[in-house]
């Protein structure tokens, strides 16, 4: 997917002005509320007409103020999953799913209904109304409906923000696997850096109606580490835990981690802030933290007033942050061995 947007739009005191070209199948638009994300997406979907500029998707002009082109939303083949599921309450799950499919031209129909409902685990819901589905089920139906319209681009406008944390991380694998399996590129819109890193490769960051950064989601997280109160959030893919002496021991690659909270998920994940990691030059004699891992420094990067240290912990990546003086005192540089200490309570199971 290649998208070029050079658009301007003003409403009252707010104005959005941006000019970018982005390629890739997993693109993110990141920004706080009021940064212009939704305005941008509305213009791309065709709900909102820019004041001026142009929009090109895969070489096709969707909007051009100069050439007076403005392709109608229904002809753009851009499906959308919204923050609220927005299912049609007067239709059953099956009828909702088929709404876009029936309106899609036959030559564009490449997605098999049975395969999709199987991937999204919707088979048992097809005959039901949408009113009494759970939040996660509704969002899966909304995703299936958007995919079955056989779009050339899927827009996901904060699709997880109405869900609680546990549901959020249950839905993410569906969002990823469906678009990957059916080869549909997507643009994922969110104000959550974690979601960006889990869902996207390339991110466009917006602030006050302007694009301020275009980078990989990993780079964006590193760049923001220094000014974010949460620091850099390490996402750890863990194994099934075993309970031991009041906490849980999770396999983590070749290492293991002691974590206060348990998880009943088959593939648990945990987040750990870079601020929660304490580095030692030598193995400490005694320490209260339940996790002490021997690591090798892979690289250093600066972010604001902080220095990020990328570590290799038994084959697992981990980012810690320290101030510049600490780097000098520890004598940290790539290849050096350090010890990383983390409390069992510092992790948050997702």
């Amino acid at each position: 997917m290649k998208l070029s947007m050079n658009v301007n739009k003003s409403f009252g005191a707010f104005s959005l002005s941006t000019d970018f070209t982005v390629s890739g199948d997993c693109v993110g638009i990141f920004g706080a509320s009021g940064s212009g994300k939704s305005t941008l997406v509305s213009m791309l979907a065709g709900f909102l007409k820019p004041d001026s500029g142009s929009i090109h998707l895969d070489g096709e002009c969707l909007y051009s103020s100069e050439k007076r082109i403005n392709v109608k939303p229904e002809l753009r083949r851009i499906s959308m999953v919204f923050q609220q599921h927005n299912l049609f309450p007067h239709l059953s799950v099956m009828e909702n799913l088929l709404y876009g499919f029936k309106r899609c031209r036959k030559e564009h129909r490449t997605i098999d209904f049975d395969t999709l409902t199987d991937v999204l685990k919707l088979q048992g819901l097809l005959g039901r109304g949408v009113a009494n589905l759970s939040g996660g089920e509704k969002q899966r139906v909304a995703l299936g409906r958007a995919i079955l319209a056989n779009p050339r681009l899927l827009l996901m406008d904060e699709p997880l923000s109405a869900l609680d944390d546990s549901l959020r991380f249950q839905i993410i694998p569906y969002l990823k696997s469906v678009s990957e399996q059916f080869a549909i590129p997507y643009i994922f819109i969110s104000h959550s850096l974690i979601e960006m890193r889990m869902m996207t490769d390339t991110v466009l960051a917006f602030e006050n109606g302007r694009m301020i950064e275009q980078s990989s989601s990993e780079q964006l997280a590193r760049n923001r580490m220094g000014k974010s109160p949460a620091g850099y959030i390490n996402l750890l893919h863990l194994g099934v835990p075993a309970e031991s002496a009041g906490h849980f021991v999770y396999p983590w690659g070749r290492a293991s981690l002691h974590i206060s909270a348990g998880s009943d998920r088959a593939e648990p994940m945990a987040e750990l802030s870079s601020k929660e990691i304490i580095l030692f030059k030598q193995h400490p004699e005694a320490i209260s933290a339940r996790n002490l891992l021997k690591c090798t420094v892979r690289s250093l990067f600066s972010s604001g007033r902080k220095i990020g240290i990328e570590l290799d912990c038994a084959g697992n990546p981990l980012v810690a942050e320290v101030v510049e003086e600490a780097v000098k005192e520890l004598g940290v540089f790539p290849g050096v061995t350090v010890y990383a200490a983390m409390k069992a309570s510092a992790f948050r199971i997702l």
Binding site: E74, F82, Q84, P89, H90, Y99, C104, A146
Partner: peptide
Amino acid sequence: ERPMEVAATLGASTLDAFFTVALPLAR
């Protein structure tokens, strides 16, 4: 506006969306 926008992203024209979405919802 949202149900009409959803219908549009699913390929429904304004008239189609009016009859298949707006009218049933306004019943």
